[in-house]
Structure formats: structure tokens, C-alpha cells
């Protein structure tokens, strides 16, 4: 067993997930490739969305991959960080908006 849960070299082995279950892996990677192709959104826009989502789901592999991709596609440092702030705002907002649920419940049960 590895001494750490995350290892940068594992990113290069992502494709190896097909070893245990090839059919689903093939379907997933085929889907993945199509998702990132130019469509109503450009490949470039999708890379920055992926970077923001990577921060929201806190995936170090995805952060590594989509920082590289976003820089390659020409985004500036300021644009990269603004994308992270979007992720942070949504994550923060997602917690805070549940405050309404908390308030509803509290008000219901308190005199």
C-alpha cells in the first residue's frame, strides 16, 4: 500500500482503470473526449470550466491537468484565479443557502 493517497504519476495512469472493467471505461473515455470538443462552447472555454469544477470537487489530478490545459490555451493568471473564485463562491454560496433551510427548521421548532 502506498504511503500517500495521491501520487502525481497516477494521473498518467488514468487510462488504466480499464484494466478492471474495460467496457465502462471505454464508454466513459469516449464520452469524455466528446464533452471537451468544440461545440456551443469552445474547447478553450471548456478547459476553464473544468478548472473551476476541479477546484469545486477538490481533485488534485484535475487541477494539475486543467491548469496545464488552461495555460496552454492562453488564459492569463488573473483569469485562472477568477475561475477559482467562481468555484469558491459557488461552494460558499452552496453552504450558506442551506442556512435558509436551517432557519426554516429552527423557526418551526422554536417558540
Amino acid at each position: 500500500m502506498e504511503k500517500t493517497y495521491y501520487h502525481p504519476d497516477d494521473l498518467k495512469k488514468f487510462g488504466n482503470i480499464s484494466e478492471f472493467e474495460p467496457k465502462l471505461a471505454e464508454k466513459f473515455f469516449d464520452y469524455y473526449r466528446h464533452v471537451f470538443k468544440d461545440g456551443a462552447l469552445s474547447e478553450k472555454e471548456k478547459a476553464l470550466i473544468a478548472l473551476a469544477v476541479a477546484h469545486a470537487v477538490q481533485c488534485p489530478y484535475c487541477i494539475d491537468a486543467y491548469t496545464q490545459e488552461s495555460v496552454t490555451k492562453g488564459f492569463s493568471e488573473a483569469q485562472l484565479m477568477e475561475a477559482v473564485h467562481v468555484a469558491a463562491a459557488i461552494r460558499g454560496g452552496a453552504s450558506l443557502v442551506h442556512g435558509v433551510q436551517m432557519m426554516n427548521k429552527a423557526k418551526k421548532i422554536m417558540m
Partner: peptide, 16 residues
């Protein structure tokens, strides 16, 4: 590229 990454798609970069 101004660092350790590859060039992006030439046609798209040209448009930009």
C-alpha cells in the same frame, strides 16, 4: 509557449 507547456492549436491561436 512561455513556459513548460506545448503550443495550442495553431488555427485557433491565429484567430485569437
Amino acid at each position: 509557449p512561455n513556459g513548460a507547456f506545448l503550443s495550442a492549436n495553431q488555427k485557433k491561436l491565429e484567430e485569437e
